Simulated scan of single mutants.
Amino acid sequence: MALHNRVSAEVLKQQLAEETFERKTVSFYQYANIEDPQAFRDQLYTQFFNLQVFGRIYVAHEGINAQISVPAHNFDAFREALYSHSFLHGIRLNVAVDDNGKSFWVLKIKVRDKIVADGIDDPTFNIMNRGQYLDAKGFNELADDKDTIIIDMRNHYEYEVGHFENAIEIPSDTFREQLPMAVEMMKDNKDKNIIMYCTGGIRCEKASAYMLHNGFKNIYHLEGGIIEYTNKARQQELPIKFKGKNFVFDDRLGERIGDEIISQCHQCGAPCDSHTNCANEGCHLLFIQCEACAAKHQGCCSEACHDVVQLPLEEQEKLRKGIDKGQMIFNKSKQRLRPRLNQE
């Protein structure tokens, strides 16, 4: 069998829409030493393809990072296949909080230099020397201490729509920028209790190791991130300290946790936390847009993009020829977004 997809996106999305069975959206990661990432990637692709697993998986020498969609009737077989790899046996699986089963429509497994791009080139850095895990109960108890510092290790567009009470944003567009910024911002608090968190745990785990590497003492990170925290807090009937929506990197673009809407439409300022990608395929900018503005601007982020989508498809294709917009799907850089919205 071919170890990559050969079917068009349109066909795959249609097949997904026609499915009559339930799917579960799941994420997991593991820092580990993988000697041959390519061989492991190919083996995993064969296992998951046969189980109709969709999603995005990155494999590197330092481990694996996965966000996937699994048919409910294949879930036990999927878990058995995953656990057949010794370093993944018994790994925690983060099941989505708010799931419509349509998070992914194709299986992509890629080999990368790192599962989380961090910009760290210090050979003495050790990811295994990481902070202490906190479960939901432990997080709530430590967060109630007014001297505890809570740091959000996600991008600004994730923080914007939802975050924990009193959490500090590290104002950056990338994780590699956030790491040294977090060290600098917290340099006068090296002896305080610091909790770091992210969506599923992978970023805050590495961040906690980086803080310890830079001389911090009492570093904690939220086990399983926001997703595991929410599931466990609900199961244990604990107060949920997360406000708003949890941004996710799949077609859902977010899962509802708190009823609060803490962000605004980027075009009119109305309360809104619905992310979308600009309808102009040559732009595809990620931004927050309310239903009224979506109708008014036909899903576009600016007048310039609105003008483009009025053109015949052939003209649109000519305009975007050669443009690499792959990174813009999940790139709402403040610097890039501001001049576009100022056109309104």
Results as ranks from 00 to 15, higher is better:
Arg320Val: 01
Lys108Gly: 00
Val53Leu: 03
Ala207Ile: 03
Phe249Ser: 04
Thr25Val: 12
Asn33Cys: 08
Tyr229Glu: 08
Glu260His: 07
Gly258Met: 04
Ala292His: 15
Leu12Tyr: 08
His163Lys: 08
Pro339His: 12
Asn50Asp: 14
Thr20Ser: 14
Ser274Phe: 08
Ala17Ile: 00
Val95Lys: 12
Thr20Tyr: 02
Glu223Val: 00
Tyr210Ser: 06
Pro312Ile: 05
Arg6Asn: 13
Leu313Arg: 15
Pro271Thr: 06
Gln343Ser: 15
Cys272Glu: 10
Phe49Arg: 14
Phe330Pro: 01
Gly254Gln: 09
Ile262Gln: 03
Ile219Lys: 01
Gln67Phe: 00
Phe104Asn: 08
Ser274Glu: 15
Met128Ala: 12
Pro171Phe: 02
Phe54Cys: 15
Pro271Trp: 08
Asp191Gly: 12
Asp273Cys: 13
Tyr29Pro: 01
Asn100His: 11
Val183His: 05
Pro312His: 08
Ser8Gly: 06
Gln43Pro: 00
Ile219Gln: 04
Asn129Trp: 01
Arg176Thr: 05
Leu12Val: 06
Asn50Cys: 11
Glu19Trp: 01
Asn74Ser: 13
Phe78Tyr: 14
Glu177Val: 00
Ser103Gln: 12
Glu19Leu: 11
Glu317Phe: 06
Gly63Trp: 11
Phe54Ile: 05
Val183Gly: 08
Leu134Pro: 02
Gln267Ile: 15
Met211Pro: 10
Tyr159Leu: 04
Glu35Pro: 00
Ala209Lys: 02
Ile57Leu: 06
Ala167Arg: 04
Lys332Cys: 15
His89Thr: 12
Ala77Asn: 15
Glu205Leu: 10
Leu12Trp: 08
Arg234Gly: 08
Val183Glu: 02
Tyr31Ser: 10
Arg176Met: 08
Ile120Trp: 09
Tyr197Gln: 07
Lys102Glu: 11
Asp250Gln: 05
Asp135Trp: 04
Phe242Ile: 06
Ala294Trp: 05
Gly101Ala: 10
His266Lys: 12
Asp144Ser: 15
Asn129Glu: 15
Ser86Val: 13
Leu341Trp: 03
Gly322Asp: 08
Asn214Tyr: 03
Glu184Thr: 13
Gln30Leu: 14
Val183Met: 04
Asn342Met: 13
Val53Thr: 06
Asp324Tyr: 11
Gly101Gln: 04
Ile120Tyr: 05
Gln327Lys: 13
Pro180Ile: 02
Ser103Asp: 11
Pro339Gly: 10
Glu344Met: 14
